[in-house]
Design a protein around this nucleic acid. Sequence first.
DNA 1: AAGTGGTCTAGACCACCGT
DNA 2: CGGTGGTCTAGACCACTTT
Lengths: 248, 248
Amino acid sequence: MTEASPSAPPRPDARPLYAQVEAILTGRIVGGDWPPGHALPAEPELAQELGVSHGTVRKALAALEARRLIERRQGKGTFVAQHTSEQARDHFFRVRDLEGREANPTSLVLSLHTDAATPAEAAAFALPAEAAVHRLRRLRLQDGQPFLVEEITLPAAIFPGFTLALGRELPDELYVLYQRRHGVTVVRTRESLSALPAGAAEADLLGVPPGTALLAVERRTWDAAGRVVEQRLSQLNTARFRYVMELD
Amino acid sequence: MTEASPSAPPRPDARPLYAQVEAILTGRIVGGDWPPGHALPAEPELAQELGVSHGTVRKALAALEARRLIERRQGKGTFVAQHTSEQARDHFFRVRDLEGREANPTSLVLSLHTDAATPAEAAAFALPAEAAVHRLRRLRLQDGQPFLVEEITLPAAIFPGFTLALGRELPDELYVLYQRRHGVTVVRTRESLSALPAGAAEADLLGVPPGTALLAVERRTWDAAGRVVEQRLSQLNTARFRYVMELD
DNA sequence: AAGTGGTCTAGACCACCGT
DNA sequence: CGGTGGTCTAGACCACTTT
């Protein structure tokens, strides 16, 4: 830790100590020193190693917990967060049925191939022009009924050799797979919602008349290192499901 | 504060001290002991009055700040939150233009009258059957162009004598008005989004062809005391504006 | 019993704001 | 300058989990 001695003259580090500790621990987690599920050192141990007090370590850990990078369990320890299907769906998948219950959909992969990024995609991902991206198109169904079409774009540089079995159901949430297979921990998304009439292809897939009003969700996704790691366009038939948001 | 003496036998209060302090302060704020904008006692003063340490008071205040019930300003003091137009819009109004800039709309009141709650409304507001509710219909415009129609329902018991000048622009966000004129502090909303074709009346108001896909937002609103204080249905033309959501 | 995270205290010092 | 909130420490004790 930077010295806090009374005579240190210029700029040790303008941020408070707990913020510095938070940054150090964030770096170790996103850098892979401690993989998902791994236990962090105990609080007194961290305090001694970093040369700060117990309380300062706890304040940093509280911030990491709020960002969902770690999980703390009394009596057991502190662990790097594992993305589980339930957590990922609960947190980032805002679709609920008309009674407010969470959807529990299955996924059908329609296509997956790799090609050159459009200029807009290259800009969004901060990639060179025409860098390789994977494009995934899938249909999500509840009780055998399709209700959501998604087109997902991933930079090949971040997801080398990304593969999925076509036409097969996906058991896990995609974000779990990103973490387990590619070390990508999703921590933030930004979504822009609009309403649009169903095109011929989407109408066919969703089993609705062309022109039916659909809810379009354009999502951009960031990982713990602050990189844009995914873009997706989802089109939702809101006859049986809604997009639900709580603000407080 | 409940005694924490080592010999207190049964259940003083299972919650941690800071949670008890938070509950006490919440009660004073929502009860009106300290109106919006009023300064709270200084931290050492609160600590002494409640018989807890400085650190415990600070932890409770941090929770109140996270809930946006108070604002702390270093060197000045801690104040009961004032809803300002900017804050209310920023936090609860998720509409942005296509470049991500915040909309800065004006409002046109189309109608305002009082009648009997529907059974669904009575249930939502926990009111007796056919209790009085105010119904407000308004149009929101940006640069003179309408883009949003809203129907707002308020329980008359919570908003006695609610009035607005018809056909006039509203300078302030409604939630500011709820707090200033009726002592209602909005702290939470839940929104359910769907896509639907524009009806004849909405199409006419928004200047779009009937059947145009609109984004429908059904909002339910709670105040700091946990009461449902508002329901509204907003219909948004997403040609120029989007509903934007950040999750992390 | 030992080790973990969770709570609480008492006190020091700093950064900012007003007079 | 005195008063405010913000940071940091050292240590005590509690609650929970595992051995």
